[in-house]
Nucleic acid binder design. Structure first.
Lengths: 216, 216
DNA sequence: ATGGTTGTGTACTGAACAGTCAGAAATCTA
DNA sequence: TAGATTTCTGACTGTTCAGTACACAACCAT
């Protein structure tokens, strides 16, 4: 009846780092897809036993959701960091972002995207396309990921407009959606096996078509 | 020892239509993904028993490859039919194609794309992204699908250029790649659950950015 | 130390999986 | 009609799957 003399989580401490585990699981899901990844695969990739996996993440689907949540959090930090800034460099930041983004979303900030372009595709996008409308939670998380980046891109477009680098009559949100769609498309086109050079060329074409102000 | 008195295929005739079966399998793969589809699912969707499936298509992977080949053949017929024509209507054909394509690739020419946008995604694209670089045959077939449409789009761009509707200095192949990338991207964005109106708006934004001739 | 509490590893379970196979059924030639 | 040949059907195989159960290990407070 003693009303819990000490707080939860005070007995045996966890021997794994939660983020590290979710990271490894994300890599596995991105490489093999959701249905192509077994719990044993996750167990091997993370080093966790099945018991711990179920206790800490509630099974395969739970691991997916929490890995996606971590991915979302990471995007929410990274995208603004890369895109936000003073108005005068905005167009160039957009250019750099576009050029990098068509080559995939890296697992971590420092690691290069990936050897296999299909595994470098946006985690959220890949899961959403694989699981489709059959998994509403995944769909919502994926849309959250899209939104947080789209917002950052739109803000960058607005900055470029303020600086006179993009036609002020253009709708920044429409433009952001279009750019993000191109980036997602490069995930797919890259999965066909096209060379990085081709993806760069697509990005450059897109950038060149951005609406410039009418009068210089 | 009688050296086969009649030709092969003369005994019991097949009781199924090959194309119809591959079509049903394609629908299943597009809905559930490759790894999310079991042989029993295919069997149920097509009405064929397992034995027949293995005899005629060499198992699950064989069904996929042959379904993709059929899809490729279909694209090779449809895309030029929609995009080819006289120079003067070329830009409008491109416009119409783009608007339709962002809403998905229909299973058949008459049927509307699909209720579930993720299932309406380009079959080849979805398989390429799911199976990634681990399946070279799928990757090659997917690239073939991309190429055949890209060629048709590029030809349409050239026609529009000849008609003075698109900047003649623009590289038609680059433009075609970009447009196709946008269309593939809309497969992904659509899978997030965005409304058809949003996809239409993306397509219109893209169309509006096409490079027009400098002097009117 | 000791008892309570939590994390970890592994063996287990029933279901689902891909692929095989032998016999029944259907259609041919003769 | 009889024999040959092919397709079809559904049961079977061994494997792998997601998830559970339970014993053991690690760490807390006292």
């Amino acid at each position: 009846m003693a009303p819990r003399p000490y707080l939860l989580g005070m007995a045996r401490p966890r021997s794994f780092d939660r983020d590290h585990v979710l990271h490894a699981a994300e890599r596995q899901f991105r490489t093999s897809g959701y249905n192509g990844t077994s719990v044993d695969d996750i167990s091997a990739a993370t080093g966790l036993g099945r018991g711990s996996l179920y206790a800490a993440f509630d099974g395969k689907h739970g691991v997916l959701l929490q890995a996606m949540a971590g991915y979302f959090a990471r995007l929410g930090q990274l995208a603004p960091k890369v895109l936000a800034g003073p108005d005068e460099g905005a167009l160039e930041r957009l250019h750099g972002y576009l050029l990098r983004a068509v080559h995939g979303v890296p697992l971590a900030a420092d690691v290069p995207p990936a050897d296999d372009r299909a595994a470098a595709a946006c985690f959220a996008a890949k899961m959403a396309l694989e699981l489709g409308a059959s998994d509403a939670e995944v769909q919502r998380l994926a849309d959250d990921c899209f939104s947080v980046v789209a917002t950052a891109v739109a803000e960058c477009v607005r900055a470029a407009q303020r600086n006179g680098d993009i036609d002020p009559d253009a709708d920044p949100d429409d433009l952001a959606y279009l750019l993000l769609t191109i980036i997602r498309g490069s995930d797919v086109v890259g999965a066909y096996g096209h060379s990085p050079a081709r993806l760069t060329s697509i990005a450059e074409s897109a950038f060149a078509l951005l609406p410039r102000p009418r009068h210089r």
